[in-house]
């Protein structure tokens, strides 16, 4: 059970870490000052969640690795984040669509994980849920504003949907890890989370006058450590200091 919980915590923790890093790339580049601050705040929440999740993952693993070692000293294939979160920022529409598809998944997931039979995971979910509600509101409102906005904004955010939608199946990937944890009451049934996600997406897209791509190409593999080329480049930057100056602190 221990290795399954470790694996599951890596998925959650790596999602937060990699998306947190991606969103932080907007710092100083936001389209307006308020958005720059909003994106940076969201990034900070995500990195905070990653800290709690990876710290706990290290404790569960029991090999003496702490959250920093897990965040900065693993190789690409050991990261279990979904493919969606490692995708490039692109324009503001692309960043917002990636965030929305993710928040719409995280919100019902954390709502369910509050009832986990694992008390530490439940505590992290309780803490993170409050933040995720703010994130969801922010990204969903922007999706509606941009989708039902000008011709240009509509076109751009629809392009983001077309480009990112294929990664959504990766969010709902399950294997023997989930089966084992589900039996213990540690994680919820993924099917229910998927349904809630679909409902949010349909509601928000309908208000935003956006369409789900008719082409049903699907791309997954992130949970198994099979990533797009973008992750390696992200890690090269994120891990640079610890690789170049092992154990450095500041």
């Amino acid at each position: 059970m221990k290795e399954h919980l470790f694996e599951y915590l890596l998925r959650l923790g790596d999602d937060s870490l990699i998306l947190g890093h991606r969103v932080s790339e907007w710092c100083g580049h936001g389209p307006i000052l308020e958005e720059d601050i909003a994106l940076t705040n969201i990034s900070l929440d995500l990195i905070g969640q990653a800290t709690s999740l990876l710290k706990y993952a290290g404790e569960v693993e029991g090999k003496g690795r702490d959250e920093d070692q897990l965040a900065f000293l693993r190789l690409e294939h050991d990261y279990k984040n979904c493919l969606l979160v490692e995708q490039l920022n692109g324009d503001f529409g692309m960043t917002i669509m990636r965030q929305f598809l993710f928040d719409a998944y995280r919100l019902p997931l954390f709502e369910a994980l509050i009832h986990s039979s694992d008390s530490q995971l439940a505590a992290i979910a309780e803490k993170s849920l409050k933040e995720t509600k703010y994130h969801y509101r922010h990204s969903a409102e922007w999706v509606i504003r941009l989708g039902d906005g000008t011709e240009e904004s509509h076109e751009r955010i629809q392009k983001a949907v077309n480009s990112l939608f294929k990664y959504h199946v990766d969010l709902f990937f399950t294997n023997h890890v989930d089966d084992a944890l589900l039996k213990e009451g540690i994680v919820p049934e993924m099917k229910a989370i998927h349904n809630k996600w679909m409902e949010s997406v349909k509601n928000v897209f309908s208000e935003a006058t956006l369409e789900i791509p008719s082409n049903n190409w699907e791309q997954s593999g992130g949970r198994l450590g099979r990533h797009s080329e973008h992750l390696g480049l992200l890690l090269a930057e994120m891990q640079y200091m610890q690789r170049a100056y092992p154990n450095m602190e500041w």
Binding site: E34, E35, I37, A38, N41, L44, D45, R137, H138
Partner: peptide
């Protein structure tokens, strides 16, 4: 409200 996100995580603008 100018923005739900402010100078620190706990504040809005």
């Amino acid at each position: 409200m100018v923005s739900e996100f402010g100078s620190t995580a706990c504040k809005a603008h």
